[in-house]
Structure formats: C-alpha cells, structure tokens
Write a protein that binds this DNA or RNA. Structure first.
Lengths: 369, 369
DNA sequence: TTGAAAGCGCTAACAA
DNA sequence: TTGTTAGCGCTTTCAA
C-alpha cells in the first residue's frame, strides 16, 4: 500500500503538502497541486482513513443502531439514512440489536470506541438505563428515530405522530359502532411508538366513553408468529371482537393467515386495521385500512439534523414530529352491527349445511360478540 | 477520554502491559492483570479502535455492499450477515449502491480506505470492469452473494440455484399447457441471479420445443412501477399471454395491482408465478406460486466463509450453491385451456351486461391468446 | 514477565 | 505558499 510519504517523495514535496493538495486547502499553488496529483495517479495512492481519523480526531463515520433490520420499515429508514449520510461523505457503521436491549448498549459502546462522529438510534428499549448512560457518555450528536429519551439532553429526535394517527384510526372504528376492539401491539412501553399508539387508542376509547379492556389488549415482540397465536387463542375461546387494531407490520401476515385459516372474512366477519402500511395491506383482498407515513422523510429529516450538527451549526437538539395518514380501505368498511349479522348468518348457514368442509367461523365464534 | 497512558499511570505499569493484560496475552501475571483491571474500572477506559487498527493493521471491520437495501430480501441478508459478523467481534460498514453501478466501485474504494478486513458484495452490476479492478486490488477476502465474477480469483461466492429453480417453475407452467409465457425479469445480465434465472427459463422452453419470444421478454431495474407498466402495456395491446413469470420481488405488487385494476383474475384469467417468495405471495388471494430460498442460510454461509478466511485458515476461495424450492400455489393451478375459456366466457358475459361498470378484461384481451 | 522505544500513516501547529 | 516537527493512541519489537 502506498503511503503519503511515498507520494511526497515522488512529487518532491513534503507529506503535509500532499495532505493540503488533496484536501482542498486554500493556499496551495497550482504547480504543487499538479505534482501531487501526478504522483497520486502514478501510485494509485488512497489515504488511510484510519490514520487520518486518529490524527484529525474525526472518523467521518456515523453509526446506526437498529432494533431489527428484518422489519422492512426499519430497513427502509436505514436505506434512506445511508443515502444522505454517504452523500455527505460519511460512512455508515451498522449495528443491529436483533430485538435484544443489551445489544443496544453494547452497540453504543462499540460505535463510541470506533470513534463515530454521530449516532442514529432506533433501539429496542429506550428506557434501558445502561443505554441512556452510554448515550450520555457519547460525545457527538445523537438522533433518535421514533424514540424519545427525555433524560438525554444532547439527543435530537424525529418521531411520527403515532398518537394522532392511532386516535383517528380508532375513532373511525368507533364511529362504525365497534365497541369491542382488540389492540394487538408490539412491546407497549419500550418505545415512543408503542407508547404513543396505545395512548392514542385509549384516548379515542375514552372520548367515546369506553375503557380499555385488559382482555382485549395484547402485546409482544414484533415477530410474525405472535399475530397468529393471538387470533388463534381468541377464536378458540369464541372471543374474537368485532374489530382488530394490529400494530407492528410483522404481525399482519400472521393475523391474516389465521383469520383465513379459520374462515373469518376480513371486512365482513371482522373489521381489521393496521398501524403500519405495507404492500400486503394494499393488495390484500379486501385491502386493509392502515396508517401510513413516509420513512423516507423520517430518515432524511434525521440525517439532516445529524449532519447539520456535525457541520458545526450549534443547533440545539430538538424534536421533530412528522404526520401520519389514515388510509381508509374496505377492511374497515363494516359496522359492528353488520359484523354481528354476518356472523350469525354464517352460523345458521353452516347449521343447514352441517358437516361440509367449507370454511366458516368455528365453534360459532360469532356468538361471542 | 481516558487513554492507555492514563490507565498505565494509575496501575503503575507500562502502556504495553495494559494492552497485554486486556488482550489476553499468555504471559501476564495475575497481579499485573488485577492492577490493570482495577485502573480500567476506575477510569472507564475504552481502547480507541481507530488507533488500535492503525497500529495492528487490522480494523476488525467488515464491509457489506448491497445494491438496494429497500428490497426486503437483501435487507434480510444484511440482517443475518451483521449477526454473524458482529458475533465474531467485527463491526459492519454498510454501503448501499441504490441501484447505481458506479457506487459499487466507489464503495469498494471507500471500504478499502477504511481498512476493512473483508468485503461482502451484493453489487448492482457484476460485469462492471472498474468494480472488478477495485475488488482485485482489495487485499482481504471477498465473498459474493448471488453474484459471480470469474476474473476475481480471490473471491468466494455463495449463490442460490436459480437456474434449477426457474427451470422447474417454468416446466410446471409448460406442463399445464401454457405456451405463451411472459418473462418479467430484473436486469438480465448484470448479475448471476438475472442470468441464471433467464437461462433456466429458456432451457425449460427449449426442452419443450419452444423458443423464447422477444415480445414476451421484459427486463428493467427492480422497482415496483416497472411491473405495473409492463402489464398495462400488454393489456392495452390485448397481448397478455396465458402465464406470467415475474422475477424480482419489487415487481410483484405492481403486477398484482395492475391485474386487479383491469379485472384480470389471477389463477383464472392468467397463471402467475414469482421468482421470489414474499408474505404478499403467500397471503394474496389466490396465493401465488413462488420460488423460495433461505436468505438466512445464504448469509450464514457467506459470513462463515469470510470469517474462516479472516481466522487464517488458508481456505481456497470457492463457490457454494444453495437450493431453491418451488412453492406451488393456486395462482398457477389453471391450464392454458382453462385460461382461454375463462377469458372468452367473461367476454361474452360482459357483452350480455354491456355498459355496466363491473371490472373485466378490457377490449377483449382474452382474444389475444 | 515486564518495560522502553519505536512507529503505524496521517494532519495540526508552527516556522520559514 | 511550503516544510519541519510533533504526536494522535495504540501495539509491536526488542531488551532486560
């Protein structure tokens, strides 16, 4: 590997002049620059960024901590953040927590040791005290994405307006007469997302004179099987409510799979709404009502915040709230009353044609409503 | 930030002894180790990995180049690779090419300059000469994922058996009597995936005495809109064939959207198969036949190859081929004959109820087959 | 088993 | 405008 010394020797100049010529230093003569560029071209010299970082005390790297890259929505955020970050001349160090809060903390330490200039955080558990401490000890700017850590005063945050989105989605169900609504969320209190969504759901219920029923509140890590299990269990107990609000997008396939398997018709025997929008929600028959938001925008705003702070503008850390849209689709175009009728009609239909293999609500699940 | 000097001073030992104590050097007395560990605990010392990397000539970082992280399948590979790599004590540098071949090359240079110990490559265009040259100039191990660069003798490769998978999928359609099959692929010759899939498709045709019809071969970058456009154009020309093979998963939503919009019933008015499996393919009504493979396994095998080479076992670079499964589903459970019948029945049906707004094949698309 | 010295490759600070 | 010198924080080498 050619070093700066070798280039300097060939060009007949000092190593520092090579640095200056290559880094666009203002006071460099054309002649010197020519000599240096020629020597660089000859040798194929590429500066060692490890050494440069050590000396200049800036690695020009940004760390991204993500709770679970297998979630396409989070992958999308990383995608767009990487775009903005690399465009600004920084390289991304990626740390994936795989749903384990301890890894969040480890990642901050590792990134710190690798001397990244800034960190973007989509952690598993924002309440984790060790994580908070590790972030507080990190010297550079920190931006949280859909997370909030009030204790961490050096951190900016970009969040979607999950409260408002979920409130309006729930309101839509309540206005269709639904009084028993299953809320199937991710971990409810580890992140801003989980917390605000549940808060929006509860507020909408309260404004319609309803309380959250503990038996209709389910939460678990955002893995597909969980969605399936919850629906299966409710159907087994003949306790499927007339409407379902399902949170993190990994649950959606599981919920739909189990409903199909049991012959429960979405949009007829149950109303279904998702708090994340996906191609599946759009293309399912019937299409599924969902909350949508721009992960692109989330990423761009977060990257801008980080890069501005890195560029030295002494911007105060701040919180940006981005809008969430309700995408109304046929899966919720059914009133509670219609759900009850559909279920009882199917029940009696099955009785008439008893013993046939046609799919239908098992064990008269409609009676539970 | 505490440095090794400060720790050494506190422990009353030499800096080199701190390194030895912390790095598990064999010849270190218990006493010295205790003193060092105490000083480390007191100060919260964390070694500067930039400096360590500079001196030891190994950054303990691995670069991953990915053509487009927004593709959930690629994100999944990155997810599992990161898992294996970080478990081995390495940190991942992520470089996303956003579909631009020039960025592939840039990324290799950047990662090289950042002194990563190895590179995993899912590039946009494996034929790119600059990329090949950049990879050849990289001193560490290189592993290609679903890519092949014969010229690069230092690179291992892990590929899925796209040829065999696509062959069998196509055979399945041919056996149902389909003779006009649209092949809607990604860029056909820039990667092993694209090339092998097309080769498998053509081989299956050839073995049934058919040639590839240029008007039934479409290719474009793997973005959603492309799928939609191709179907729209074919329907506009009344030229939709009886079966469709659609390649990269981003096309699938577009294809389905357009078919739905035009009232073409998948599995009745057209047979549809996808070369990538997704939750959408599984949960679509009717479910869509697709090729599936384990991205998890792909990633693990690739990571193992890289890490083994890093661990010094002088393994020859080699190519590993992983299996691809055909998931038969109802979307292809329709013969060419049935497609023709369905289309003409719908056509006459529409004629009887002419002028109504019901969805149906426009302009008698069935006649084209 | 431990310490002292050197130096990885670069850039900042200062001097010319 | 350019060169010289020093040193970022660590690990390696060599000597004790």
């Amino acid at each position: 590997m050619t070093t700066i010394k070798e280039v300097a020797r060939r060009a007949g100049v000092a190593p520092a002049s090579v640095t200056r010529a290559l880094s666009g230093h203002p006071n460099v003569s054309d002649e010197l620059r020519q000599k240096v560029l020629a020597a660089v071209a000859e040798t194929g010299y590429k500066p060692d960024l490890l050494a440069a970082g050590l000396r200049s005390r800036s690695s020009r790297c940004v760390g991204i901590i993500v709770s679970d890259l297998i979630n396409p929505l989070l992958a999308e955020v990383v995608h767009y953040m990487e775009m903005a970050i690399s465009q600004a001349g920084y390289t991304v160090l990626l740390a994936n927590s795989h749903g384990d809060p301890a890894r969040d903390t480890d990642s901050v330490h590792t990134l710190h040791q690798r001397r990244v200039d800034a960190i973007a955080v989509m952690c598993v558990d924002e309440r984790n005290a060790e994580l908070q401490q590790a972030l507080a000890g990190f010297p550079g700017p920190v931006v949280l994405l859909d997370r909030e850590i009030p204790s961490c005063e050096t951190a900016s945050a970009v969040v979607s307006d999950h409260y408002r989105g979920t409130y309006r989605l729930t309101e839509h169900l309540l206005e269709a007469g639904h009084r028993e609504i299953l809320y199937l969320g991710g971990l409810l209190d580890t992140t801003h997302v989980g917390r605000e969504r549940l808060r929006g759901f509860q507020a909408a219920l309260a404004d319609h004179g309803l309380e959250m029923r503990p038996d209709l509140l389910r939460a678990s890590r955002a893995v597909a099987q969980a969605g399936r299990d919850v629906i299966a269990e409710l159907l087994d107990r003949d306790a499927l409510p007339s409407a379902i609000v399902v949170g993190p997008n990994p649950f959606v396939p599981g919920v739909l799979t189990e409903l199909h398997a049991r012959g429960v018709r979405v949009g007829q025997d149950v109303a279904l709404a998702s708090l994340d929008d996906t191609p599946l929600a759009v293309l399912h028959q019937p299409p599924v009502t969902a909350l949508s938001r721009s992960m692109d925008e989330l990423a761009r705003v977060a990257a801008r915040l980080l890069l501005d702070q890195l560029a030295g503008s002494r911007i105060q850390p701040r919180t940006v709230v981005l809008p969430v849209e309700v995408q109304l689709r046929p899966s919720t175009a059914v009133t509670a009353e219609a759900v009850a009728q559909n279920r009882s009609r199917r029940r009696s239909g099955r009785r008439r044609a008893s013993g046939d293999g046609a799919p239908g609500l098992r064990r008269g699940a409609g009676a539970a409503v």
